[in-house]
Design a protein around this nucleic acid. Structure first.
Lengths: 151, 151
DNA sequence: GTAATTGCAAATGGTTTGCAGCATC
DNA sequence: GATGCTGCAAACCATTTGCAATTAC
């Protein structure tokens, strides 16, 4: 991880921690571990993956606590849940707002491409349908460079 | 339903039926019922909703058979599955290819807005990430006109 | 001290699976 | 008549829930 990334991760961790403190939620070692991992994970980890990492530094933690912490952070808009119908949900604590994703259907890698023009699309949809749009989700599915080369 | 819609629905039904026949799948009353309902449903029904409608005309049908038929049609690219992480999946047998959806978070209504420029977006993503894109999913979430007025 | 949080275990629920009997071709 | 399909019931499995014990404040 580059110095710049490590700096961003720390900032993001502090941001989430401040939010929890300001709302009088209790700061437990388990929650701190989840925050630290979410702030440092560029790879959109699953609940299970977060669990394994938390366990490494705090072995008594249970999976239920991971889920409860995620629910809490979702409610505070501090983590973005990428729900998938096969039940393998993934989480993004770095950019906890809607943004497009590119997902490798072979290895499961998830990346964030930078795309313009989504806000305009949202406005177009609103005009054409009369909906008040609150949220969106845009996923592209395909095969990543590494998996292509591995063929 | 307008005459035009009823005509389209019949065409679509025939299209799916022909596909099943050409591939030597057996034509059962249950399958015919599912095809007819999918071809006529603009509202992106759930498996349960398809089940209820099939049951109305063919009471011994089981939910398992509905799911098996859906799996079959998915494999033939004759139905689009809109999977949701809460397990309430919805199906589109009329336009069985990726297209954007607008979803009412209050009443569950799903509409198809006509949007341009998605193919270009797909190409942009491919260039920027090196992925070969095979598929995509674009959902907008919000509140429909009727639910706004009901407030 | 007390109210929130944890850890454990059981429940949830849409979908999938296995299999015996039945219907299609 | 052989094979594929149906109906039933059990299994699946990530997530949620209930509750007694523990911990942050």
């Amino acid at each position: 991880m580059a110095l710049d990334d490590s700096r961003k991760s720390e900032d993001r961790f502090q941001e989430m921690l401040d939010k929890l403190k300001s709302l009088d939620f209790r700061i437990t070692p388990q929650r701190l571990a989840v925050l630290r991992i979410l702030a440092a994970s560029e790879d959109h980890p699953s609940a299970e993956q977060i669990f394994e990492k938390v366990r490494a530094e705090f072995p008594t933690t249970s999976l239920g606590t991971i889920y409860k912490t995620i629910v809490l952070l979702k409610g505070l808009n501090e983590v973005l849940e990428l729900g998938f119908p096969d039940g393998r949900n993934r989480y993004d604590g770095i950019k906890p707002f809607p943004h497009p994703h590119v997902i490798c259907t072979k290895c499961g890698k998830i990346m964030d491409p930078e795309l313009m023009g989504l806000d305009e699309l949202e406005e177009e949809v609103s005009k054409k349908t009369g909906f008040i749009i609150q949220n969106h989700r845009l996923d592209f599915f395909g095969m990543c460079k590494e998996c292509q080369d591995a063929t």
